[in-house]
C-alpha cells in the first residue's frame, strides 16, 4: 500500500456514506414535518400533541445516530457500522410509522 491510498479513499467511500446518512436525516425531517402538519390539520388535541412530541423524539434519535456515525467517518478507514446503530436507525423509522398510525386513527 502506498501512502496516498492511506490518505484518501480514491472511490470516496467515506464521503458517499456520510452523504447517505445526510440524505436519510433529510428524509426523516420531511416525515417529521408531515407529522407536525397532520397534528395541526386534525385539530390540536392532547393525543395528537403527544404523538407529535414522540415523533420529534424519534427524529432527534435518528439525528443523534447519524451524527455519531458521521463523526467516525472522518478517518481514512472507517470501522464498519455497529449493529446497535443500524437497529437504532431502523427503530426510529418504525417509531415514525407507529406514531403516524396513532395520529391517523
Amino acid at each position: 500500500m502506498t501512502a496516498a491510498v492511506h490518505d484518501r479513499d480514491p472511490g470516496l467511500q467515506p464521503e458517499r456514506t456520510r452523504l447517505a446518512w445526510r440524505r436519510t436525516t433529510l428524509s426523516a425531517t420531511v416525515v417529521a414535518l408531515l407529522a407536525g402538519r397532520q397534528a395541526l390539520h386534525s385539530g390540536v388535541s392532547p393525543a395528537a400533541l403527544v404523538a407529535v412530541a414522540l415523533t420529534a423524539v424519534a427524529w432527534l434519535g435518528l439525528l443523534a445516530v447519524a451524527h455519531l456515525r458521521v463523526r467516525r467517518m472522518g478517518v481514512a478507514r472507517p470501522e464498519p457500522l455497529a449493529p446497535r446503530g443500524a437497529l437504532a436507525a431502523a427503530l426510529c423509522t418504525v417509531a415514525f410509522a407507529v406514531f403516524a398510525v396513532a395520529m391517523l386513527f
Binding site: S27, A28, V30, R37, Q38, T93, A97, A100
Partner: peptide
C-alpha cells in the same frame, strides 16, 4: 421513510 411520508 418515503413510504411513511406517503401514508401521511
Amino acid at each position: 421513510l418515503a413510504l411513511i411520508g406517503g401514508g401521511f
